Amino acid sequence: MSISPGPVNIITMTSGLNHGVYRTVPFVAGATIGFTSLLFCIGIGAAELIALFPDFMQLIGYFGAAFMLYMSYKITFSKGTIALEEGNQPGFFQGVLLNVLNPKAWIASISGVTAFTAKGDVSNLVLFCSLYFFICFIGVGSWAVVGQQAKRLVQTERHLRFFNILMGMGLASVALYLLLT
């Protein structure tokens, strides 16, 4: 799931293209820590809370969609400069927040904990979360590398501007889909 297309990976690829892999690492680290923290929390009992309060997932979906729309706006209207610019790239906190508010991350966490850990076995959960930490970091980080490599295809500021608009609109589409389903 970490390497499949989704909101976190769209932002990671866009940041990789606009800012390079090195400047995207804080976002990747935040997304990884956010996801594995969510995975751990689900494993120690958050899934039962979701079952008790089903409207909570809908609320997470609304907050997640709103945050994705905000990030979409930032991407769509970012500068179309070819030179790697300091600042305005998504950071650690945005990575954590995006995965905690991402319904795809919640579903993946619930599925993963259910499939790969035994209920109440904390040592197995810690092992699973530790392994997934590396899997997630590599999966999400690979999108930053893809974005940086795509820089060869984006040779003008007009091309970069078009790419940012395309990625921002793609992210907005995901957010609107979450709101409407």
Rank of each mutant, 00 (worst) to 15 (best):
I33L: 15
Q148M: 13
M71D: 08
L125H: 00
Q155W: 03
G87D: 14
L171V: 00
F40N: 01
L49S: 14
T81N: 13
F93S: 07
P90W: 02
K104R: 13
A172N: 09
V96P: 02
G20F: 10
V8I: 15
K151N: 11
F93W: 11
L97R: 02
V126I: 15
P90A: 09
G43S: 09
I75L: 07
F56E: 01
W106F: 12
F92L: 14
I60N: 06
S173E: 12
S142D: 08
G20Q: 04
I138M: 07
G139Q: 05
A29M: 14
H19Y: 15
P26M: 10
I42Y: 05
L101G: 01
F134V: 05
L84P: 01
V100K: 01
R158T: 14
I44N: 07
V21E: 12
F137K: 00
T12R: 07
P103F: 03
Q94H: 07
G87H: 10
T181G: 09
R158N: 09
K104I: 05
N164P: 01
L101C: 06
A115Y: 04
L179N: 01
W143K: 08
L69A: 06
T14C: 15
G64F: 00
I75N: 00
P7S: 15
F162D: 11
A65I: 06
G95T: 12
P7W: 01
T14I: 07
T81G: 12
C129H: 08
L101M: 14
F128V: 06
S142V: 12
F67D: 02
F67Y: 15
A31N: 09
N102I: 06
L178M: 11
T181L: 11
L171A: 05
I135Y: 04
N18H: 02
I165K: 05
I135M: 09
F137P: 00
F134G: 01
F163I: 10
G43V: 04
M169Y: 14
V146N: 03
A105H: 08
Y177E: 00
V145F: 05
F133M: 14
V174K: 02
G120S: 07
D55K: 12
G87A: 13
T14L: 13
P7A: 13
F27D: 04
G30P: 06
F77W: 13
P103M: 12
S173I: 13
Q155I: 09
V146I: 15
E86V: 12
Y22H: 11
P90L: 10
A118K: 14
N124I: 10
Q94R: 04
L101S: 04
G34W: 11
F93H: 02
P54T: 07
V8A: 12
T181D: 09
A31Y: 12
Y73C: 13
L127H: 13
W143H: 10
L69Y: 03
L38W: 07
M1N: 08
I3Y: 04
Y62D: 11
F116L: 15
A66Q: 03
M57R: 08
S2W: 02
A51H: 09
W106P: 04
A175H: 03
G43L: 10
V28C: 04
D55F: 15
L17T: 15
G6W: 06
L52H: 14
C136M: 03
M1L: 06
I82Y: 04
T117A: 15
L160P: 02
I75Y: 04
S142R: 10
L84G: 02
S173H: 12
M169G: 08
V145Q: 05
K151I: 03
M68V: 05
Y22V: 13
F116H: 11
A47K: 11
Q58T: 15
M71P: 01
